[in-house]
Amino acid sequence: MSDTRPIPFQYQFFSGAIAGVSEILVMYPLDVVKTRMQLQVAGTGEVPYKSMFDCFSRIIKQEGLGRLYRGINAPILMEAPKRAVKFSANDKWGEVYRSWFGVTYMSQPLAILTGATAGVTESFVVVPFELVKIRLQDKTSKYTGVVDVVRKTVQQEGVLAMYNGLEATMLRHATWNAGYFGIIFKIRSMLPEATTKTEKTRNDLISGTIGGTFGTVFCTPFDVVKSRIQNTVKVAGVVPKYNWAVPSLFTVSREEGFMALYKGFLPKVLRLGPGGGILLVVFTGCMDFFRGYHFSN
């Protein structure tokens, strides 16, 4: 039987932070490949990546293995607050909605609503870090590091430019979290109840992986336009080609075809599917540890 007794916020924060950093250390090269594929625009004269494997191969051959980890400082700095906010906000919003609707137990529609709201909450934390990461991952990037991106962006575009892509990020996180937490709720209800730690880990890995996969299907189009919006350096008096999420969706679809909205899908789903499983296993494991520590003292 799973112990679900509530524990103080700081334990949720540290559990989310540990889970997020664990996931990114394992999965980051897939994120670099995903971003490279998303930033490719037809008709620019560049030889397009034929596949995820072609992208991996060309990056390693032309730029070196270390390039697959370029920009990792930004997401590592981001992952602790991002994942901590994701899980703690999901728990807190769940409490709020159960109180508002006068229900005791979580349902799947409530899990979807809670996940979407947590995703929007999370977006305000992650946008500046995402912008730095995207600009460092770009093949043509001239930035020397995290500080250089922040300094030049603020100098050339203003402080608020660090929040370019906020709208697209909110839509991306709302759809991913809604799919992730909604599917986790459903899959957990279908799996046999765990009676041992091994069975609990198995259930978390299965439900988290499936949840991450579905969340990726829903959010990838918003992720594609988010990457392009955040990689666009704004110039005074010039309207950016990629500026707002919904118009950018139509621009990409019209100019490159609907499937262009799913560029980088394979490395993204390979990261966020199994990555979602890793997140859930590490998070629940940490929560169980902290819960045991808290109630034993």
Rank of each mutant, 00 (worst) to 15 (best):
M1R: 12
S2M: 07
Q10L: 15
M27N: 13
Q38V: 15
V41K: 04
P48G: 12
K50P: 03
I59S: 02
R67G: 02
A84W: 02
N90D: 00
V96M: 09
S99D: 10
W100I: 15
Y105R: 15
M106L: 11
L113G: 07
A116T: 01
A116Q: 01
T117N: 10
V120Q: 13
E122P: 00
V126Y: 01
P128M: 07
E130A: 12
K133A: 15
Q137I: 14
D138F: 00
K139L: 09
S141F: 07
Y143L: 13
V146E: 15
V146T: 15
V147Q: 11
V149K: 04
R151T: 14
L160C: 03
M162P: 04
M170W: 07
M170R: 01
A178E: 01
Y180E: 08
F181K: 05
K197R: 13
E199L: 06
S207D: 03
G215P: 09
S227C: 14
I229M: 10
I229G: 04
T232L: 12
G237E: 03
N243H: 08
W244Y: 13
L249Q: 02
L249E: 05
E255A: 09
E255Y: 04
F258M: 10
M259F: 12
L261S: 11
L261E: 12
L270W: 11
R271A: 13
P274V: 11
G275I: 09
L280V: 06
M287R: 07
Y293E: 12
H294W: 07
N297Y: 03
